[in-house]
Design a protein around this nucleic acid. Structure first.
Lengths: 348, 348
DNA sequence: AAAATATAGTTAAGCGTTTAACGTATAAGG
DNA sequence: CCTTATACGTTAAACGCTTAACTATATTTT
């Protein structure tokens, strides 16, 4: 047997299992007293046998597993990577461990992951849903059972969940306003997935900026993309090949990875950024400042998002009443070379 | 109660708990037969009550938790991020879930994380140890208890563990040889941590390259750094301020993040790369090709590393005898502008 | 001397499963 | 009519732990 049990220690020490349990948990509570002598003995035997508590057994009786399920689309998306880091850090400090699950942006693996997380009787669940609007009933079921659940970054429009998200309407509005300022009117948005809340909000922000300038919005400029560099690359190559980039003055990506793919494709074709076309990302990754052309982006405070998620989660676990359902974190526009048109030059 | 139990279903269906368990696990094995009727009934009630098995209870009796503990220094290090992704992917396919833990490059959190992982009775553990050589006895204890354990990327010199690592001697050798080729003799290595196996190997590769050219190695050129951009930045600023970069013809970082920090500091001071100094990274991140000066780096096949780790882990779990203790994955030098000196120019 | 209190524990139930070892009731075979 | 086989289960122990309720002995108080 690789693991010693309380019974093993009890046998060695000639004491009952209950006593051993109490000593090891330092629970001399409510009138139960244990002599210093047996205490030391038990501790010695525990060390000797290399005793490690079995959390499965412990948490079966205490309804508290001290685990949080974190379900994200994909940890390779840097945004989720950072969220995972900051959230882990916070949770670790409070003694929670993390069960990490991936949906791979796909509803079925997501469903399975949720079921798995529930079966492991976690104390709480943080979900950044897969793109689209799937597994809604399942998540609603969780909520209705009062299992602490927080939606992160992405949420379900008009459905009631605790959520922590970026203010994407605002971020997008600021970015698009800036691009309009730079003279762009045809702004292509490689928008990830149109049914995902993040994109819906960003498109709303986009529209808002255009409305304010009283310029009509062309629907065809919203193009679905994936979330990775190669997606941005492929789509841009295709657009160039189709001549679909004629008249487009700016391209914005749903994240910096996509923007990087766009840049790659443009450079390959000899299209100059920002002279010929403006390019912006979203998320402001660590490297974006240092690209061949420094990339304009919208900074999302992942550490702040994680912090809010953490605090909300702790309150839910403590069964506190929380009035505020949705927390929105604002973001900041970072303008760099990739979207600044020098007024003298500029061939389309 | 948020969760239904087997007993709840049994009561509704007027059957015993054992029968319910058998139906839900589809175990009509060894002569135990259950009528189609009760089967359907039980399944209906299970759905109705939204039954979700309690893995804590299940795995208490079956000694198999279907969880793998993954302990890494820091998921923000892109290398570990990618490893985590590919390994998760593989493990998910085989029905394993992931308990993610961070050491933050610190021995004490690492120790706690290991204890936690063990207490959760995982089926296996993958550890990328924190820098230095800590918690050796603890890990040896795990190994001696026949708990499947694999060391990833970093290992303990001369100690016997199953491990999957990059061939860092080779990678470093190739990189340094290339730099020597480019005329560099004073090659500064911001090497992370000198007691970590990765660095020890890289320094060995460095020496090998110099030995081959019969050039003596200057010990002072190995400088410890952290693993992040800001670390590379700070150290370079200090070196510049101290005038310590005089005569240095190339800087190599322990990873691309460090190299990025180096580049940042150099650019701020108006030092030109590669004209004034060569800079190389390690790991070949997605963005490194697209930097202001495309970065020379050594490609590490994280997906291959993950694949090997996965396969080895599965074998260990199945208690197969494995002859090969250490698996080394080779890596490839990617030469880009940041280390290619144009022969005509070149001010030191 | 009896009662109360303090000290140092023990017993046993229960958490939700799995699973080996046992029932029953009915039908078929001899 | 008795035996055997078949179909369809049930009982109960066990996994390792926590914890409410109890016990036994010694010491102090009244």
């Amino acid at each position: 047997m690789p693991y010693a049990t309380l019974a093993d220690i009890a046998k060695r020490a000639n004491k009952s299992i209950a006593t051993v349990s109490r000593v090891l948990n330092d629970k001399a509570d409510e009138g139960i007293r244990i002599s210093e002598e047996t205490k030391q003995q038990i501790l010695t035997f525990a060390k000797e046998l290399n005793y490690r508590p079995n959390f499965l057994a412990r948490h079966l009786v205490q309804k508290d597993s001290r685990v949080i399920g974190l379900l994200i689309p994909d940890i390779m998306q840097i945004f989720f990577n950072e969220i995972c880091y900051y959230l882990s850090r916070k949770l670790n400090e409070s003694g929670y461990d993390i069960l990490l699950a991936h949906s791979y942006e796909d509803p079925e693996p997501e469903r399975k992951a949720i079921e798995m997380i529930l079966s492991r009787r976690v104390n709480g669940i943080v979900v950044a849903p897969a793109k689209g609007q799937h597994n809604l009933e399942l998540l609603e079921d969780i909520r209705s059972r009062n299992i602490p659940l927080i939606l992160l970054d992405r949420y379900f429009i008009d459905k009631i969940f605790y959520s922590v998200t970026s203010d994407d309407v605002q971020g997008s509005y600021r970015l698009v306003s800036h691009l309009i300022d730079q003279g762009a009117r045809n702004i292509l948005f490689l928008c990830g997935d149109r049914e995902t809340s993040v994109t819906i909000e960003r498109i709303a922000g986009y529209r808002k900026a255009f409305l304010e300038q009283k310029i009509p919005v062309e629907e065809r400029l919203f193009l679905e993309s994936g979330f990775f560099q190669k997606d941005g690359y492929k789509i841009t190559r295709r657009l160039i090949a189709d001549g679909a980039l004629k008249g487009v003055e700016a391209i914005m990506g749903v994240n910096d990875e996509i923007a990087l793919g766009v840049l790659e494709a443009l450079w390959e074709e000899g299209v100059k950024v920002p002279q010929d076309i403006l390019v912006a990302g979203y998320g402001d990754e660590r490297y974006s400042k240092y690209l061949r052309v420094p990339l304009t982006s919208v900074q999302q405070q992942t550490s702040v998002l994680a912090e809010h998620t953490y605090r909300l989660l702790m309150k839910l676990i403590e069964k506190k009443k929380i009035p505020k359902i949705n927390t929105k974190v604002s973001c900041q526009l970072i303008v760099r070379e990739s979207t600044v048109r020098e007024r003298q030059g500029g061939a389309a």
